[in-house]
Amino acid sequence: MNQLPVEYLFFVGAIGLVGIGVAGMLLCRNLFRVLLALVIAEAGANLLLVLTGYRWDAVAPIVLPGMPAGTTMVDPVPQALVLTAIVIGVGIQAFAVAVLIKIYHGYGSLDRRRLAAMLDRDMNELAGVGPGRSPEAPAGKRPFPPPEQQEGRS
């Protein structure tokens, strides 16, 4: 590999997007930002997938009148795959935003660590187990004030 063609920049861009997205998912504390990071990572993966069909000096895979026979075209399959993957991503993102709205109504926060602690408490309450090791102990002092809005207001 003595000299890299400039087209490799596309690859660097796609993989960079995946890296930014995954890093954002692991590092951000606000759940909405985590979701945005997921969207970025998906964009990177889609870009990488569409690049797999790249050809030098090729045109879009559409037969136009007057096109000379034997024109090189790029691979149509990855384009169709990415179209599918993008639409799948959109559906999941819309659903995720709706769930986020309900989470914010329910808990009054979108901070990942606070929510993790509150989810743990909620699950213990749901199961009728107190915090800590002793199953019989009372619920103890709550680490966070209970949010004003509860579920059941859909």
Partner: peptide, 17 residues
């Protein structure tokens, strides 16, 4: 329940990754 919403969202994030 709100716990189900939160658990689903965390499941969704892992599944998205």
């Amino acid at each position: 329940t709100r716990a189900a919403h939160l658990a689903t969202f965390r499941y969704l994030l892992i599944s998205g990754l």
